[in-house]
Every structure is written in C-alpha cells, then in structure tokens.
Design a protein around this nucleic acid. Structure first.
Length: 563
RNA sequence: UGGGGAUUGGUGUAAUGGUAGCACGGCUGACUCUGAAUCAGUUAGUAUAGGUUCAAAUCCUAUAUCCCCAGCCA
C-alpha cells in the first residue's frame, strides 16, 4: 500500500507472520480478520487495525475477513454495520466475499457450549450478577467456588437447554466455564460464557434469548474462519490464556492471538464512549462532524484515504502505549493534498481594494496554474477588474520591515496579475479600522513580472469583486486544548478541555468564479491559506467549504514567537 | 500491595551481541509569482544502578516509572 520508497519497517507482528510462513505453520497461509462490534462508528484508531490486518494479508497473498462481533443485541444495530462497511471501502480495502458475523455461528457456539458441559468444563450458575462479583474475589484475593459449581452434567445440560428455551428471565442463570476460581488471572476465574438476554438481535431477530460472551465467541469465530493470526489490542493480552483454553478444550483450529498497542493521538479522544458523548451531548454536530476522529468525520473534513494509510504506516506497530503527535497526521494529509489538490484563490476575510488607475468597467482574463506540482492539471482563466478583495491579514498599517505585504507605500504582486502599490487607506470613522485600500497598478507587470526586473517580496491572493462567488467557510481547530484531554489530571474531565474555538464559521468569503462549479467533496488548495473541500451542506446558491488543514505558515509562527 | 505488558532524541519508530538510523517537529540557510512546496545543513536519545563480554539499546540481577485486568461490555 505504500507507494513511495520511504522504508516502512517490518514490525513485530509482521515478523511473527514471516517466521510462521517460513516454518510452514498453517501450511504457509495467512488469514487475518478485522472484527468490529457494530455499536458505533469507526475512527482513526480502527484505521490502524484495518491497515495492519488487511495489509498483512495482502503482503502475504492471504485474505482478510471482515467479521462483525455482534454478540450483544442490546447495543448493536444495522446502521453501524452499513457505516463500517462504507468506511472500510472508502479506505480502499476489500474483504471480497469474506463478510461474516459472529451471529452466523450462534448454533455452532451453542453446540460447543454443550460439549463443554458434557466434558464437565462448564456449568450453569444461579448466582446473581452481584453475587458472582463477590465470589470472584479481588485483584489480590482469590475467588471462591460458586455453590452450583459441582452440579452434575445432566442437570447442567437440562438447565442450559431450558435457558435457551426461554424458561428463565434475564440474569436468572448464566453458563460459566469451569476453570480455576483462584487463578491470579481474573479472566480465568470461571468466566461467564452465556447470558440470558431477551432482546431483539439485528440479524437473528428473536431466534435466541441466550447470547455468548465475547470470550466465548471471538476465538471460536476465528477458529471457524481458519484465521491464522488474530491481531487485537493490548487490553486482550490477559484474555489470551482464556482464548487458548477454549480452542484447546474444544479441540479446534488454534489461531494465534497477537496484541499491539492501540493508537492515541494528542488533542483527541479516541474512545467510542467519549465520542458518543460528544455526539449525544451535542458538543459536536453528529458522528461525521469534521472535528471528530471518526473516519466519516475525517472524510467530511477532507482527509484522503491515502493520507490516513500513510499515517498508519508511519506510526508503526508496537506494544508501547504511545501518544502520537497530531502533526504527523497533518503532515501526511498535506503531503497528499499538495500533490492532488487544484489551486484556487479565495479570500476569507475580505478587504476591498480599488485600483485607481485601472480603467473602470474593464475586465481581463489572466492565466493561472492549476497545480505547480502537476503540470498535467493545466491552467485556467481568472478574471481581474478595478475592484478586488484581498485578505485583511495581508494589510497592516504600521507594518514591520519583514511584513512582505500591503501597507501604505509598499508594492506587492497580485498573483498571476499585476504589481500594485498601496496609496492610501479609507477608514471606518468610528472604529478606525481600514475598510478600503486605494492602490495603483503598474500595467507593465501584467502576468506578475516586471520587465525592468524589479522584485517584490510579497505575492497576495485576490478575487475580483464583480466576479466573486460568495461562500461560507468553516474553519476547524482541534477539539481540545490539552494534549491529553482524558489524562485525568487534577480530577479534570475531557469536557474541561473543550476548545471554544474549534469551529469558526465565516460567512462573507469571496471565491474566484471557477469555484462556483465545485461539487460535494471536491478538494482545493486556496493559495496561501490551506486545503478546503466542499461540504455536503453546500448548494449551488449557498456554497459551503470546510478547511481541511491550513498550510504551514512560517510567518504566523515567527509572528507568534515574537509576541 | 495478585496477574499481565511496556520503557531508545520533544514525538513516532529502527537497530534481534559489532558504526545508535529513519520520519515528524524545531532551528539555519538556499530557492520561490503560494511566507506553501522543494533543497541543503543542523539540533537532540538507549529509564536508573550494578554485572557478563574484546564489544551491550540488545544478555543477567536489582530498582524506578507507566499501562491493562475485579461487566451477565467488546
């Protein structure tokens, strides 16, 4: 998937896979899987896992399955299934016909539970959830055996079948694996493997009223699908002995579980629960709010699949709990957009400029390059006239020497147009703020070069007032002000770090006319400003652009450093 | 204070007993009709203390710090 020569190192998971292929384990085959629970939207953290699982399969002529771990009917919905599939496809990965659901295996899982009971390795327990918790012990004290632990096989069989038949209410009984209640690993203290849940399932409807727990479904699902390498995140490391216990007790194919560290990025929250809160508490405008780290949010923001994949490759795969700088993500984004985004001119905060010696009523069409990185993208015409808009930030009344922009008496270039010199300022009487600049132009500099070889330090973007397209532009900033909003410092919650300026809406923006034809999702670089894309809210009459990411700005940086 | 993991520049990673490298960021400078991009240079690291070895990020011993686990969630 990496298209250029930048070396992406072989991570420890790939090393294990390579070793297994070499030793001909699994007949040299590689089958991985991406196993989301359909209870929420995918985010950038999932992208890391998707890239890993699909990437390893592709690199080894293997396949990667998409399997929905849908064992909890109370939380899961088809809406999420569809959204997840859309996001994975958008990233560019293909699971072919290998679309599976843990719920496809409910019957098999049930039969295996029966086998465990028959082997005296599982029993029905009547304890309440609260009692089970008490019997489980603590981190430092061993658990105690349930009084029902030694029920005979036939009684267990009878009870479990009656659980399935719906004879008991939710929570009245559970099926537990009989392992070791004194184990230092709490996951092995007779874990619950089936619970009664009289709930409607998004795929199996009301066929079942008992549902397997994750631990009893995941490994076996892997096994059924002949998964060779079951790659998951660190928090499941403690579950591996249980994973192994089930496949060994059941004497079925034994996939190898390998754990890696999940992705963390500073200034973001990366948990499904917190994201759901942001949505439900209306802190953001839905799962696809461009400030969200969800894949649908990032797509709307203007992230490209390639930039996300490249980022994931750069982040690498280890067991170290890291906090990646968001700058790395943004670098990957700019890198891609710089190559593919056509350039255009747009003025976000317009300042009117009248070119006094330019003939009234005259219009010219000037040639502009669409992408200096890619000649094949050609050129376009941009109209020029007597009244134009420039950026308010490109004018300063008391300008320092190093300010290469407009100020009274200073000459700058209008990109692809003319050199202009600021002659005077018209101010608002009340505020004293400049509302218009009176300038003169040099007709000999048409196209942007002076025949006398005169140089100017600054080049400004501009838009002809008469031809401008009006637009709304939404500027996004990080959602949180703290690099670790969930860090739990000083009893603070991530809500305490919400950035009040994470969204700024500009409604008076002026864009060059070629942008008037832009369609949903199209991406541009507004020269000197950043990358922007057309938001789905946009209509022909009321265009809406999102700023995907600003350009690097060494002037702003130097300016900020001084103050 | 039970069990399981982890620790290399500011950040993310590589080096699998033999030159501590790459990327992002930062800082210089060059170039530039985008203060972008590009190019060149530069900055900065093996958690600590012992030990083994000709040689240790890597092996051994101890210590420190961080993360995960006590759902009928995944």
């Amino acid at each position: 998937m990496t298209t250029d020569q930048e070396q992406i190192s072989v991570d420890f998971v790939r090393q294990i896979v390579a070793t297994d292929i070499e030793s001909n384990k699994n007949d040299g085959k590689v089958i991985t899987r991406f196993p989301p629970e359909p209870n929420g939207y995918l985010h950038i953290g999932h992208a890391k896992s998707i890239c890993l699982n699909f990437g390893i399969a592709a690199e080894n002529q293997g396949v990667c399955h998409l399997r929905f771990d849908d064992t909890n009917p109370c939380k899961e919905e088809d809406e999420f299934v569809q959204a997840i599939k859309k996001d994975i496809r958008w990233l560019g990965f293909d699971w072919g016909e290998h679309e599976y659901y843990a719920s496809d295996y409910y019957q098999q899982l049930y039969d295996w539970a029966l086998k465990l009971i028959n082997d005296d390795k599982a029993y029905v327990d009547d304890l309440s959830a609260e009692e089970i918790r008490q019997y489980r012990g603590t981190l430092t004290e061993p658990g105690r055996e349930s009084p029902h632990r030694n029920r005979c096989v036939s009684e267990n069989l009878d009870l479990f079948q009656r659980m399935k038949a719906g004879e008991f209410d939710d929570g009245q009984k559970v099926l537990r694996a009989k392992i070791d209640v004194t184990s230092p690993n709490i996951n092995l203290r007779d874990p619950v493997i089936y619970r009664i849940l009289k709930a409607h399932h998004h795929r199996t409807g009301d066929d079942w009223c008992i549902y397997p727990m994750y631990d009893f479904a995941h490994g076996q699902s892997d096994s059924i699908e002949s998964i060779t390498h079951s790659i998951c995140t660190l928090e499941f490391e403690d579950h591996r002995p249980l994973y192994d216990w089930f496949v060994e007790s059941l004497e079925i194919h034994h996939p190898q579980q390998i754990e890696f560290a999940r992705l963390n990025i500073n200034y973001m929250v990366m948990s499904k629960r917190k994201m759901a809160e942001l949505v439900n508490q209306k802190i953001v405008n839905g799962w696809d709010d461009p400030r969200m780290p969800t894949l649908c949010g990032m797509r709307r923001r203007g992230y490209t699949p390639k930039s996300i994949i490249k980022f994931c490759a750069r982040v690498g795969v280890t067991k170290f709990n890291s906090l990646t700088d968001i700058g790395l993500l943004e670098h990957s984004l700019r890198e891609d957009l710089n190559q593919i985004a056509p350039r255009a001119m747009g003025v976000l905060n317009p300042l009117r400029v009248v070119i006094e010696n330019y003939p009234e009523g005259q219009t010219e069409e000037l040639d502009a390059v669409n992408n200096p990185q890619d000649e094949s993208m050609g050129t376009r015409k941009v109209p020029f006239s007597r009244v134009i808009y420039v950026e308010q930030d490109d004018f300063m009344e008391d300008a320092p020497r190093k300010f290469f922009r407009l100020s009274v008496g200073r000459e700058v270039r209008l990109r692809y147009a003319y050199f202009i010199t600021c002659q005077s300022i018209i101010k608002d009487e009340k505020t004293g703020k400049a509302v218009e600049l009176r300038c003169t132009y040099d007709p000999l500099t048409r196209g942007g070069d002076s025949p006398d070889g005169r140089k100017v330090k600054g080049t400004l973007h501009w838009v002809s007032a008469e031809h401008a397209v009006d637009a709304e532009v939404r500027l996004y900033d990080r959602l949180f002000t703290d690099p670790e909003p969930s860090g739990g410092k000083d009893d603070k919650d991530y809500h305490d770090y919400l950035n009040p300026d994470s969204l700024k809406v500009l409604t008076n923006c002026k864009l060059e006319p070629s942008l008037g034809k832009a369609e949903h999702g199209m991406q541009f670089q507004f020269e000197r400003l950043g990358y922007f894309c057309v938001d789905p809210d946009s209509t022909a009459d009321a265009m809406v652009f999102n700023r995907t990411v600003a350009l690097r700005d060494s002037w702003a940086k130097a300016d900020k450093a001084k103050s």
